[in-house]
Amino acid sequence: MAETRFLVVRNDEEQYSIWSADRELPAGWHDTGFAGTRSECLAHIDTVWTDMRPRSVREAAS
């Protein structure tokens, strides 16, 4: 049985998460283009989500 495929997704606050590829993505979330197994997706997020401040907090500070 094939392992479930996940997408790396992101919301407008630029917070990352993962979502099963065969489920409809909830509103307000966007596919970042990276897909893979759960652990591949989480490992990818570990490399790209370097600033965990929500975008609104980050922008208010700059």
Partner: peptide
């Protein structure tokens, strides 16, 4: 500082 765990 645990983005992957947070995303999970």
């Amino acid at each position: 500082r645990r983005p992957g765990l947070t995303a999970e």
